[in-house]
Write a protein that binds this DNA or RNA. Structure first.
Length: 811
DNA sequence: CAGGTGCATGAACTA
DNA sequence: AGTTCATGCACCTGT
């Protein structure tokens, strides 16, 4: 846009007439676009703000709640003066928006908190400013619940910065909480009551599939780049927002903000600008500029604290600025000896030099100590696409003492335009078994100087009963989990993840009285203070319809009855029971009826997964895997046919992470127990799978042999498999009485193809031993079955299925 | 035979 | 349904 004529910035709060450049602003109702001065234009993001939230809606620019006393309804307008409603033209109906203070004049105390409770459930208040840390409403991350509650009780809140829940302390990393609604954007809270439309329309993702629907109350979606022109919101150590002038002209807004955890500090925080800020908040920084960076998945957004950034810049060169580009959780293969680090395609294409040849080019990357490494940046063709890798990373990875689960962070060093590789040690997941992060419990000694090693602070989830060797083995196995994408995203230490729905049980009203707001005839309690975390309790109703609360003592596990309005700290023992002197000691007997509570609690903990039936209805029952899935699950948890033996049906296992529902490895496809071996004509899922596998294998083998024969001109004299070579594969071989056995034989002779090579025989042995403890264990059945099939003395079958393979191969 | 290399596969994820 | 990416594995090369 040229500046040939005298113009005035149409941002009503700016009005600048002189500017080096004019930029296009929001679309005008009459057509065309508003004209913005350069700074306003730089900040204005028509995709993320007005167009998305107004123009795509029918009746855009019209307030939906003008007649409501609380809000004009313009989602964006309340805080964003760039919004069209605040920019040039006030909200058509209520003109209220203009009266609201612009962001640039807001200080933290002006920003209202807001937390709404409706029908007993907590929601991110639609009237609140939760945008500043842009919490992910996809998950509620509760860290150190105990500390949280205690801190909350000790420290009054003074800010909502940090999300809908409180971050009381500077080192809030351990207490960081973000939240979100369920993945589909729906809010299926425990009370299936109708919701005001303001909640019904909530969707965690601003660019979700229902993008065109009105999205009220999701200001948190605008989590980054919310500042005034040239500013960005930076968190400070006391949790109060500050605005820090940051050159913004290099910034661009992401047209697709896919998530969830946007940056507090805007795009491309530069080390120079944050000196002295000293925030410990780990924030996902929206990507810096780069080709196609808008496509970067937020899981690759660098989550680096300002302190870390400072540290790097200090370590490298005080005169340089560091722009975090992306980060990646190291996979097992990334950290393995193979020395190849798979680069996320989008990141590679955005921040690495373009390459046309598969061989790529050598690329020099500096580590945070200043040491330069040369990697080969290249790609492989993959399904009409490319797979980018950095080769030769092993020395660097080892130098930084990284393991699978740790995180490498790629940054750019300006003005040298150098790539910098940093690292962050894997956090330890509280729940954890399935988290494949490397959990060595030790500090990162490779780069002690770097504050980027701040996590994995000596805490472990080590089982004291386990030998170090076993821990190592388990570590290695966990890393191999196929479910890494699910489990490798824990970002903060000791972090648990809950959905909003799940979090409801832990949320308690803050002490302050709420403001009751009536919207659409629904009564909402709005709290200025965030909800606090309490211990999970069970509410019951007495015969006289009085609500009472049951809480379990952390010490003696007895249930105690308390008034319903008592706030229970997350660590609660009988001694806290001041309301009932008779039962303020663990020695006091449990009240009548308390015995049922365990059962209630257990039931409430059952998987809440809903299965969507074909008719579209959802069923509130755990998904029961069938066939291989059921067997796999059963093999792991020792339950058969839904008869739970130990653990929830679909729960994670602390054993072999691959032995989960769906795993079809040789361990998991064991036939169901209790019915002995399968008949040769059995057409069960397992047997048919095994038959199919065997058939394929034999075909391949024959093909290979015939090819080899035709080439060498000699006949193969090696029989493919002993016994009758029935493709039926069931019970016809001399020692391959079951399909699984056949697979083991034939695949074993093929160097173990399709076997679960991640299995450690010793681990399997342990598993089997454990399984054997369960009389109904499928492992035991399997074991017994094979024992009957393999001649004594020729088999190590006692060591489990994996050994079956080894032995038969040799025989 | 061990280790390196490049591709194929399929689970997980996204649109 | 399409894409991404972790990993398996066949093939190649060097010892």
């Amino acid at each position: 846009m040229s500046s040939s004529a005298v113009k005035t910035c149409m941002n009503g709060l700016c009005g600048a007439t002189t500017t080096p450049q004019w930029k296009r602003g929001w679309p005008m109702k009459a057509g065309g676009f508003a004209t913005l001065c350069y700074p306003c234009g730089c900040t204005y993001d028509n995709l993320n703000y007005c167009e998305r939230f107004h123009l795509n809606e029918p009746g855009w620019r019209e307030c939906k709640f003008c007649d409501k006393p609380v809000h004009c309804g313009c989602v964006v307008s309340k805080y964003l003066h760039e919004c069209l409603d605040l920019g040039g033209i006030s909200c058509i109906k209520c003109a209220r928006a203009k009266a609201i203070q612009p962001v640039k004049q807001l200080v933290s105390n002006d920003i209202p908190n807001g937390f709404a409770r409706f029908s007993g459930n907590w929601h991110p208040s639609v009237f609140s400013n939760q945008m500043n840390n842009g919490p992910s409403y996809d998950k509620v991350k509760l860290a150190h619940l105990n500390e949280g509650l205690e801190k909350h009780q000790k420290t009054p809140s003074n800010s909502s910065i940090g999300g809908p829940f409180k971050q009381d302390e500077p080192s809030s990393e351990k207490f960081s909480i973000a939240c979100s609604s369920s993945k589909d954007g729906s809010s299926s809270f425990r009370n299936p009551l109708p919701l005001p439309s303001i909640f019904q329309n909530q969707s965690p993702l601003p660019n979700g599939p229902d993008n065109n629907k009105p999205k009220l109350g999701f200001q948190q979606s605008f989590g980054f780049a919310l500042g005034t022109p040239g500013s960005s919101m930076l968190p400070t150590s006391n949790g109060v927002s500050m605005q820090e002038k940051v050159p913004s002209f290099k910034q661009e807004q992401r047209p697709h903000q896919k998530l969830s955890k946007p940056s507090k500090s805007g795009v491309s925080v530069r080390a120079q600008t944050i000196k002295g800020m000293g925030s410990d908040n780990r924030v996902a920084r929206a990507p810096a500029e780069g080709r196609g960076r808008s496509q970067l998945l937020p899981r690759y957004w660098p989550k680096i604290t300002d302190q870390e950034l400072l540290q790097i810049s200090g370590d490298l060169n005080a005169n340089c600025t560091i722009t975090p580009l992306f980060e990646k959780v190291l996979s097992a293969s990334d950290a393995g000896r193979i020395g190849r680090l798979v680069l996320p395609k989008a990141c590679a294409e955005a921040y690495f030099p373009p390459i046309n040849q598969s061989e790529g080019l050598p690329i020099r990357i500096r580590d945070i100590k200043g040491k330069e490494w040369t990697f080969q940046f290249r790609f492989w063709p993959n399904n009409n696409s490319r797979m980018y890798v950095l080769e030769g990373v092993t020395p660097c990875i080892q130098n930084m003492q990284l393991q699978a689960g740790d995180i490498v962070i790629f940054s750019r060093l300006d003005p040298e335009d150098k790539l910098v590789i940093g690292c962050r040690k894997a956090p330890i997941s509280a729940g954890a078994s399935a988290v494949p992060s490397a959990v060595d419990g030790g500090p990162c000694t490779g780069n002690e100087n770097s504050s980027i090693n701040t996590e994995r602070e000596g805490t472990t989830n080590c089982d004291p009963m386990q030998s170090p060797v076993i821990q190592e083995k388990k570590k290695a196995r966990n890393i191999g989990s196929k479910s890494k994408r699910l489990h490798m995203h824990s970002e903060d230490a000791m972090e648990l993840k809950f959905t909003w729905e799940e979090a409801q049980d832990f949320l308690r009203p803050p002490p302050a009285k709420p403001t009751v707001v009536v919207i659409e005839d629904f009564e909402l309690e709005e709290y200025d203070e965030p909800p606090v975390f309490g211990k999970r309790t069970i509410f019951t109703m007495t015969a006289s319809r009085l609500q009472e609360q049951w809480v379990q003592c952390d010490s003696c596990s007895k249930w105690r009855k308390l008034p319903s309005d008592v706030l229970i700290p997350s660590k609660w023992t009988c001694s806290h029971n001041v309301t009932d002197p008779d039962r303020c000691s663990c020695s006091a007997p449990e009240e009548k009826g308390a015995g049922d509570l365990d059962c209630i609690l257990r039931l409430s903990k059952q998987p809440k997964k809903r299965k969507v039936a074909e008719n579209g209805k959802t069923e509130d029952r755990p998904i029961e895997p069938n066939g291989l899935d059921a067997l796999a699950t059963a093999a792991v948890i020792g339950s058969v046919n839904g008869n739970e033996v130990g653990g929830s049906l679909a729960g994670p296992t602390t054993r072999h992470p691959r032995h989960r529902p769906g795993c079809t490895c040789i361990v998991c496809i064991q036939p169901p127990s209790g019915k002995g071996k399968h008949k040769p004509t059995c057409i069960c899922n397992v047997c048919s799978t095994v038959r199919r596998r065997f058939k394929t294998l034999m075909l391949r083998k024959r093909k290979r042999l015939s090819e080899a024969d035709s080439e060498t001109g000699r006949k193969s004299q090696v029989p493919v498999v002993k016994g009758t070579e029935s493709v039926d594969g069931i019970g016809t071989g001399t020692r391959t009485g079951t399909g699984v056995g056949i697979e083991a034989v034939s695949e074993g002779s093929n160097k173990g193809q399709e076997l679960d090579l991640n299995c450690d025989p010793r681990e399997e042995e342990m598993m089997l031993a454990e399984a054997a403890a369960n009389a109904s264990s499928i492992h035991t059945q399997w074991h017994n079955m094979l024992q009957g099939l393999v001649p004594n003395g020729t088999s190590d079958i006692k060591d489990g299925p994996m050994h079956t393979n080894e032995v038969v191969e040799g025989s």
